[in-house]
């Protein structure tokens, strides 16, 4: 959007051009080739994003089921039946509640820790590269690989409980219905933090040095400067971090699937996407699964809107 304004307005016509080409240019712009260059991407977006979104909404209003390829089957319109089935299912409510718990732990931890570490990293001269790389190593590693270590760390006689000794929770972390979801939230926070630190590092470059100096002259200490200059200065990045963390939470699948053996104990760590997988593909009800997906999108949009509203709505 900013690009359109920032782009140079080149002379629309050149004197030696023939009229037909001028007319074509008025329709397609100065470089019609741009459309050709973008066609593969546009086709991709249409096929992989736009069409599936429409298809998902349509499917959620049908009695849709899997059939052999090429078979003619009747898939009647059923109105809100799928949505009613979803709303009456306590497992769905539970999974949305679980995402709520996840977000309550993950979002404040992510914003707080990544801003803190990015601020510290920004002022440091030595070993910057070492710290930066060690922070994003978890981000670039597959969840599946890290899950293997976390399972070992958090089993009932694992290292974490050995260190905690008598303070170790019983039942252990991942099989404790009160702790399974918080442990997953901790895992995801730890894994993604490096990426958010990079985002905040970029944002910190845009906070004017003179603001810090002015605050110092006015007698503000380091803590005061952090809250009065740094925090407002990186607000656009914070809005972005909030949005990305929310989307990550809504997309949660691999961690509950592997870390807690499919959302256990007793559904205490089931996520909506895990439920979509179980209902849609394992149990063969893609229509109900799509309805969960549509509700989840609405849920994400509402949260994103609230965040924009209350965390500062400036365009980043």
């Amino acid at each position: 959007m900013t690009a359109v304004e920032a782009a140079p307005r080149r002379a629309a016509t050149k004197p030696d051009e023939a009229p037909p080409s001028r007319r074509r240019r008025r329709w397609l712009g100065e470089h019609p080739l741009g459309l050709l260059f973008s066609t593969p991407y546009l086709v991709f977006v249409g096929l992989i994003f736009a069409y599936p979104v429409v298809f998902a909404v349509w499917m959620s209003f049908q009695d849709y089921f899997f059939a052999a390829p090429g078979a003619e089957v009747d898939r009647p319109f059923v109105g809100f039946d799928n949505y009613i089935a979803v709303i009456e299912d306590p497992a769905v409510w539970r999974s949305f509640g679980n995402v709520g718990i996840f977000l309550l732990i993950n979002v404040p931890l992510t914003v707080g820790l990544s801003l803190l570490l990015a601020t510290a990293l920004d002022k440091v001269v030595h070993a910057r590269t070492f710290f930066r790389v060690s922070y994003y190593v978890p981000y670039v590693t597959a969840s599946v690989a890290i899950v293997a270590v976390w399972l070992f760390l958090f089993t009932s006689n694992g290292l974490v409980n050995q260190i905690l000794g008598p303070l170790a929770p019983d039942p252990s972390w991942l099989v404790n219905s009160g702790l399974a979801m918080p442990t997953i939230a901790l895992f995801v926070t730890w894994k993604g933090l490096g990426f958010y630190i990079l985002l905040y590092l970029a944002a910190l470059q845009n906070v004017g040095k003179e603001l810090y100096e002015a605050a110092s002259v006015d007698g503000a200490g380091a803590v005061r400067r952090f809250f009065s200059v740094t925090v407002p200065g990186v607000r656009p990045a914070t809005v972005l971090v909030l949005l990305l963390a929310t989307i990550t939470g809504a997309n949660l699948f691999t961690e509950p699937y592997l870390l807690t053996g499919g959302g256990g104990p007793n559904g205490a760590s089931t996520s909506p996407v895990l439920l979509i997988y179980q209902k849609g593909i394992e149990q063969g009800n893609p229509d109900v699964a799509s309805a969960i997906g549509v509700i989840l999108i609405v849920f994400v949009l509402v949260i994103a809107w609230l965040q924009r509203r209350f965390a500062g709505g400036e365009e980043s």
């Binding site: 069409y51 998902a56 499917m59 899997f66 997309n251 996407v273 979509i276 997906g293």
Partner: peptide, 13 residues
């Protein structure tokens, strides 16, 4: 910002 995994059912179909 489209959560990709929400498209998984239609994409799978």
């Amino acid at each position: 910002v489209v959560p990709f995994q929400l498209l998984m059912i239609p994409l799978y179909v």
